[in-house]
Design a protein around this nucleic acid. Sequence first.
RNA 1: GGCAGGGUAGCUCAGUUGGUUAGAGCGAAGGCUUCAUAAGCCUUAGGUCGCCGGUUCAAGUCCGGCUCCUGCUACCA
Length: 665
Amino acid sequence: MTRQILVTSALPYANGHIHLGHLVEYIQTDIFVRFQRMRGHKVGFMCADDTHGTAIMIRAEKEGTTPEKMIAEMSESHQRDFAAFGISFDHYGSTNSDANRAVGEGIWQKLLDQDLVAEKAVPRLFDNQKQMFLADRFVKGTCPKCQTPDQYGDACEKCGTAYSATELIDPKSVFTDTTPELKESQQFFVKLEPMQEMLTEWTQNSGALQTEVANYLLGYFLGKPLQDWDVSRPAPYFGFEIPNQPGNYWYVWFDAPCGYIASTVEWCAKTGDNADNWWRNENTEIVHFLGKDITYFHTLFWPAMLHAAGYNKPKRVHIHGFLQINGEKMSKSRGTFINASRYLELLDPDWLRYYYASKLSNKIDDLDFHSEEFVGKVNSDLVGRVVNLASRSAKFVATTGLSKQYPDDGGLFAKAADMSDTIAAAYESCDYREAMRLIMTCADAANEYVDQKTPWTLRKDPDKAQELQDVCTVVLNLFHQIAVYLTPVLPTLAKKTAALLGDDITSWSQASTPLVGRDIAKFQHMMTRVEAAKVDEMFTPEEVAPSSPTLEKEPLAAEITIDEFQKIDLRVAEILAANEVPEARKLLQLTLGLGGDVTRNVFAGIKGAYEPDKLVGRLVVMVANLKPRKMKFGMSEGMVAAAGTDGEVYLLSPDSGAVPGQRLH
RNA sequence: GGCAGGGUAGCUCAGUUGGUUAGAGCGAAGGCUUCAUAAGCCUUAGGUCGCCGGUUCAAGUCCGGCUCCUGCUACCA
């Protein structure tokens, strides 16, 4: 029976480039999609850029551009990366599209019709200077529980306490460093509690979710009344204004998943289909792939929206874990935050597709990119075992082609053909690791066969020409079979196999029918080996070119050791007094406090750049163990740290929380 | 803090409803082979299954406690 399956990957946020972590998901989804297409099902693979929200707005502002321009460039970059990794979307849209606005408005109207929208006043922090309400992530302050300074407005990194931004002690806007004001904001909420029963049923009994996920939802959300979901944000916000509610915008997570439908709408417009055939048709299986961080958006809010608006709920939500690099979180400072484009400079995308496939299961465990394993698996599985099969047999039948009849192979081909359903089931359940393991057992059996039959010996005896052709016919068919099974993962290998044997691989069933009596093309290498050095190079941070004009003016000083650095005692100091030195052109006299009654008298060359009155009370950094020096106006007992070239002077200040006397490490 | 998940060979992971000597791949050691991109084949070594206790004829598997790791925690996405 032909199934109709609409598959999505989560929408990448237009705030950054595609990296190896994203690719876990897109490759995983693409394998599923290609597998289903091979099985003859009707598949739509939808994705789009997620373009709205404060983060986009702020970043565009920082880069001196408009959000529209930024998301256009990012979309192009994303699509280029996806294409290079062979991600075969049927349509790639954007949440900032007319189609998406229409989908959002349609759902919104249905929510209003069913009295599922509530309006409430919410106290929120407001940045007066920037004239905007601040999301939790844009407020920093001292944790109300453990007093750790410099924590975000949602949770403390030190003690793990979750709180709301309004509870922070001494909150500051991360944009302006000013103290935000508490203001009421009228916001719109989707009422979820009326759909609690539906959601409980769907999450627990529909089979759409992995059991861990169902347990998590039951344990954390569904065990108590569902809170109303806050779906609006006050201006300024980059997104869609809510119909008839000027100054109020949909929260990005309201319109982002609508992008799945909007993409389908745009796709159907191209193909002459109707999106309702996919989204309002019970025979369509909606399958979402996403990372565990966005679980509840897709398993509570999104199904609620779909349900209220009369769309199909997902048949399956497949959630995967995060990518780790050599056992650790990806990190920019460790050089393990690898963009897709960086990978592509050095390595073959098919290697990553296979490597991920060989590690992905249907659990939500994190997946580790382990350099040595990556090299080992690709070289040993793909090159040494799979591709090598063609390489060690094709040459012997270059002139004769394949035997007319499929020879007796002791049941090898039939045995591998019998595995078709088992392998297919592994793909279907997204247990690619199991699929790869099974396929590799086929490759092992084939290599053993070559070893037993020793075609290189047969070749030397003209009387055994037929036997040689038969043996190679068997080996090439076993290879072809494996290539068919691997096609969802390695479409490029499938193409090269097709070129060698003159038979395009389009259907799963081709693994069950041997190829006979045909010429074969001249053998060409199908895959190169991974060089470990290239993988290492990928994880070596690229040298930053010293193109900075400031660095040219003042080049970096000679390298020092940590011991040498530690001789310099840098301290946080408070400016207790600042006075003009009438006869000096550049100097101000500062009295610096190091806590208690320890003070230092310092002459600092900052006159002209700072008003003495305004300096009193602020914290600076000083070199506290500098040998005192007698100057024309008195003793200077240290030095205040400041940056600047060409007469500009900028004092350094510690973040709030630091106290006078603390040493810098 | 709460919730969810995990801890099995050097590494990455399988272990079905509790049932013989706990498996695979990679890596390691030894041998064979030379067609193939130093690829292939065979053999070997390696694990008190996180810790403690309980149920049972029998526990990696079930129950209780402890411990370590990871993620999430609705107004960042």
